[in-house]
């Protein structure tokens, strides 16, 4: 079978211990392990020490200071069913419940999902396979098989929770040797598939904060894959609409649409200001959003599925997501 490379493990029980352990060169944090371990079995990375985060007190979910605060170690299956998450961030609950399959959701954590390595059909295979390919920007090579001539790796952000949390204006707190810092998740990801998060070496993500909605809101997360379970997202769309009152047909006050599974960052869809005052149940609204998504989001042949097809149906899934919100009516979930 595929074997893991050799490494040591550290099992800190406090954040300070974890930060100290992560200071060692070649150290990597491991939370649920559902992304890191397959990648290491594929020899994508050779850490000297894995710092296990499972013993850290990072699993709490609470409402504090106007925000839903979620420990980075909270398990995805729990988040999907957590009453506070369902009440205050239903699109996140939905996204967490759509990650991989049921058994992996029992291991995977929110912090881990936000730090999933980017994925590409030309990378996530064995060393033999990558050797046959001749390597690439992300793995022992200097060429990109997705964008001919490309100099920047465009491996895809494959987190289901990241688009949802960016759409909800979430922040991420990290602890490092220099103390704690908090960043807007929207600013956390960068367009380099080989190093796509702002996590500095030695840093540890500890908490995700979602500001409570200032008023009535509808939000959803849409995922499409070939199978109804197990697969990474091929279409990934988070949408949030703040409304003037609590009817689904109320005028839109603010809209935020974030698309994942494109390149290395979640894509914030621009030019949605004209939606202010429009209504979700007006088909023209969905058409306008779908048109902007279609114009601004171009799925690439980085994921193992037909890119032209993904481009063609992305707007369809936007419209369907909105239609489902309208159909749910006053039922916020």
């Amino acid at each position: 079978m595929l074997r893991l490379p050799g490494f040591r493990v550290a099992s800190p029980t406090t954040i300070a211990e974890a930060v100290a352990a992560l200071a060692e060169p070649g150290a990597r944090p491991i939370a649920g392990g559902t992304d890191l371990l397959p990648n290491l079995k594929h020899r994508l990375g050779a850490p000297t020490v894995l710092v296990q985060l499972s013993r850290l007190p990072l699993r709490d979910v609470e409402v504090r200071a106007g925000a839903l605060c979620i420990g980075a170690g909270a398990v995805l299956a729990d988040l999907a069913e957590h009453p506070l998450v369902r009440a205050h961030a239903p699109s996140l609950a939905r996204a967490a419940g759509l990650v991989a399959g049921p058994t992996l959701r029992n291991l995977g954590t929110l912090g881990g999902n936000l730090h999933l390595d980017t994925r590409c059909r030309y990378v996530n295979q064995t060393p033999l396979w990558r050797e046959a390919l001749g390597g690439c920007l992300k793995s022992h090579g200097d060429r990109c098989h997705v964008v001919p001539g490309g100099q920047t790796c465009v491996a895809a952000l494959s987190s289901d929770c990241a688009p949802a949390l960016v759409a909800l204006d979430a922040t991420l707190t990290l602890h490092g040797p220099a103390g704690a810092r908090t960043v807007a998740l929207a600013d956390y990801y960068c367009a380099d598939g080989t190093a796509h998060t702002g996590r500095a070496a030695g840093e540890l993500a500890t908490e995700i904060r979602v500001p409570l909605a200032p008023g009535p809101r509808r939000e959803t997360y849409v995922k499409w894959t070939v199978r109804k379970s197990i697969d990474f997202p091929l279409i990934s769309i988070a949408m949030r609409f703040d409304l003037a009152d609590d009817a689904v047909a109320a005028p839109i006050v603010a809209a935020r649409v974030v698309v994942g599974a494109l390149a290395s960052t979640p894509k914030l869809v621009r030019k949605l200001d004209a939606l202010r005052g429009q209504r979700l149940d007006d088909p023209a609204t969905a058409d306008a959003i779908a048109a902007q998504v279609g114009a601004q989001c171009k799925p690439l042949p980085n994921l193992p599925y037909d890119a032209d097809y993904r481009r063609a149906v992305l707007p369809v899934h936007v419209r369907r997501g909105i239609a489902a919100l309208v159909a749910a009516g006053e039922n916020h979930g």
Partner: peptide, 21 residues
């Protein structure tokens, strides 16, 4: 899923859990 066991009562794939964990 062939390697599914229960960890603290929950079903998990044992191939994605470190023995030390």
């Amino acid at each position: 899923g062939a390697c599914t066991v229960q960890l603290d009562g929950k079903a998990v794939p044992s191939c994605l859990v470190l023995g030390s964990a």
